[in-house]
Amino acid sequence: MKLPSPRGPVSDAVIAALVQAPHDFSAGDPDSDDDLHLTLFVLYELHYRGWDGVDDTWEWHPALLGLRARLEARFEAILRELPVPEATDDVPHALIEMTRETGGPSLSGYLRGRATREQFREFATHRSVYHLREADPHTFAIPRLAGPAKAALIEVQIDEYGGGVTHRMHQEMFKDTMTALGLDSTYGAYVDVVPWQTLANNNLMSLFGLHRRLRGALLGHLAAYEMTSTGPNRSYGNALRRLGGDAAATRFYDEHVEADAVHEQIAAFDMCGSFCAAEPELAADVLFGARCVLTLEDRWAEYVLSRWEAGESSLRT
């Protein structure tokens, strides 16, 4: 993946450093959400597939880790201000109640009934940042779990990775959707054009995934993701069919309608329920992770819809 263009002083300093051999450097504070989240995204990507022309030893460089910790603390402090339900002995049903909330804007409803083909292409562009590496952030939790919770997470992840069959991997299915829409399916092709709200959604799961102390939050994130997936993906598939998409184009969404109907039960009860039974002191973290993803997704949807309703693109120009 090619390094993106900077969006402020900190992302500028980091990107300028990464094209050189590893060395000590310092950076100040981000001057905007764009600068903060692009910098975090660039730093997190070093733990995934890396950047073209960037020395892999940067991944664990002390200067980068120190900067990342400072930016993460700023991001997490904002997240900790979100209202979270009281910890309970029945986390699965608490998750069910949280995911039944309907206070946010219905982006899926807009796409199903009103969106133009260009707007659907924009939607896919936003989502490509995650879907082209779908499941990878949550896989970080596997070695941090044991027993039934670990088995349940692996059951979900096996489906995400297509049971080991390349063309059935959700990452690969989404490439077919992008190709049908005339989009570039190269990994990370659209990082430069998505707004900070899209990057924040991706940074959230990386923040949870890369810290063992936040393993409960990562499971809550995944559970909320799976538990709110079936209906929207049905709408996305129907929207794309309305806009002329064929079976190959809609396969990604249709697959999620079927798979996530099963995953939501596994994630809530077998994964999160078992995890909280084994580590009850982390039950609040599970609910925190769910609240974070539900809130950030709502805010992202609100941003996208506000731009479309104003007759503007939701992407950066």
Results as ranks from 00 to 15, higher is better:
Leu145Asn: 04
Ser128Phe: 05
Pro62Lys: 11
Thr88Val: 13
Ala151Cys: 02
Trp51Tyr: 12
Ile78Leu: 15
His61Val: 14
Gly103Arg: 13
Pro137Val: 04
Leu79Asn: 13
His126Asp: 03
Leu107Cys: 08
Thr99Phe: 05
Ala69Phe: 06
Ala63Trp: 09
Arg49Phe: 02
Arg80Ala: 15
Leu95Tyr: 00
Tyr161Pro: 00
Arg49Cys: 05
Ser128Ile: 04
Arg112Asp: 05
His131Pro: 00
Asp89Thr: 14
Arg112Met: 05
Phe120Trp: 11
Pro137Tyr: 03
Pro137His: 06
Thr116Val: 03
Ile154His: 09
Arg133Leu: 09
Leu95Ser: 02
Trp58Pro: 01
Gly104Trp: 09
Ala149Gln: 03
Tyr130Met: 12
Glu160Trp: 05
Ala69Asn: 12
Gln157Leu: 13
Glu134Pro: 03
Tyr161Asp: 05
Glu86Asn: 11
Arg112Tyr: 05
Thr57Asn: 10
Ile142Asn: 04
Asp159Glu: 15
Trp58Phe: 06
Gly103His: 11
Asp56Ala: 15
Trp60Lys: 13
His126Gly: 09
Phe120His: 07
Glu134Leu: 03
Ser108Leu: 00
Arg80Cys: 14
Arg112Lys: 15
Arg127Phe: 10
Glu72Phe: 04
Pro105His: 06
Glu134Ile: 02
Arg100Leu: 07
Asp56Cys: 06
Leu71Met: 11
Arg74Trp: 06
Glu101Gln: 10
Tyr110Asp: 07
Ile78Pro: 00
Ile142Gln: 06
Ala141Tyr: 05
Leu82Cys: 06
His138Leu: 02
Leu111Val: 12
Thr102Gln: 10
Thr57Arg: 15
Tyr110Ile: 08
Pro85Val: 10
Leu111His: 02
Tyr161Ile: 08
Glu155Met: 12
His138Ala: 00
Leu67Ala: 03
Pro143Val: 11
Phe140Trp: 14
Pro62Met: 08
Ile142Tyr: 04
Ala149His: 02
Leu67Ile: 06
Leu153Gly: 07
Thr125Gln: 14
Trp60Tyr: 14
Arg100Phe: 01
Val129Ala: 07
Asp56Lys: 15
Ala151Asn: 08
Glu72Asp: 10
Leu132Val: 01
Val129Gly: 00
Val156Phe: 08
Ser128Lys: 02
Arg121Val: 11
Arg121Thr: 11
Asp56Met: 07
Arg100Tyr: 04
Leu71Val: 07
Pro148Thr: 03
Lys150Tyr: 08
Ala77Arg: 14
Glu101Asn: 09
Glu118Leu: 13
Arg74His: 15
Leu107Asn: 04
Asp55Tyr: 12
Ala141Asn: 09
Leu111Trp: 01
Trp58Asn: 02
Arg127Trp: 10
Arg70Gly: 07
Thr99Leu: 00
His131Val: 02
Ile158Gln: 12
Tyr161Ala: 01
Thr139Arg: 01
Val156Asp: 05
Ala115Gly: 09
Leu111Asp: 00
Glu101Cys: 07
His138Trp: 01
Val54Phe: 05
Ile96Glu: 10
Thr116Ile: 04
Leu145Arg: 01
Gly50Ser: 05
Asp52Glu: 13
Met98His: 06
Leu64Cys: 13
Ala152Phe: 13
Leu107Val: 10
Arg68Tyr: 08
Gly50Cys: 09
Arg70Thr: 15
Arg49Asp: 00
Thr99Ser: 11
His138Gln: 06
Arg121Ala: 14
His138Met: 03
Asp159Phe: 08
His138Tyr: 00
Thr102Ile: 02
Pro62Thr: 09
